[in-house]
């Protein structure tokens, strides 16, 4: 038998194992129960909603004005 089949089926098995592991872990840890608040999960008290977190160096805008720095 062509040894390449071993590689192909090995990869398929690896994927299978990874998926099953992920699945078991996901069920146990009770994932995906709070879809609603998901969009806010990347913000926190020190980078809250309403804070712009990127600017040209020196806090300048493209026109050369200096923005307020917090």
């Amino acid at each position: 038998m062509n040894p390449i089949y071993a590689v192909v089926w090995g990869v398929v098995a690896l994927f299978g194992v990874t998926a099953v592991y992920g699945l078991v872990w996901a069920i146990r840890s009770g994932q995906m129960r709070d879809f609603g608040r998901g969009a806010l999960s990347i913000f926190d008290d020190e980078e809250p909603v309403g804070m712009v977190t990127d600017a040209f160096p020196g806090g300048q805008t493209a026109d050369g004005e200096t923005g307020d720095r917090s």
């Binding site: 309403g50 804070m51 712009v52 977190t53 600017a55 160096p57 806090g59 307020d68 720095r69 917090s70």
Partner: peptide, 20 residues
């Protein structure tokens, strides 16, 4: 070579009035 940021490993931050 760039200027050191005010706080270590935090980015230049512009507060936008009414951004939210």
């Amino acid at each position: 070579k760039g200027r050191r940021l005010p706080e270590p490993a935090s980015a230049p931050v512009v507060a936008m009035a009414g951004g939210a």
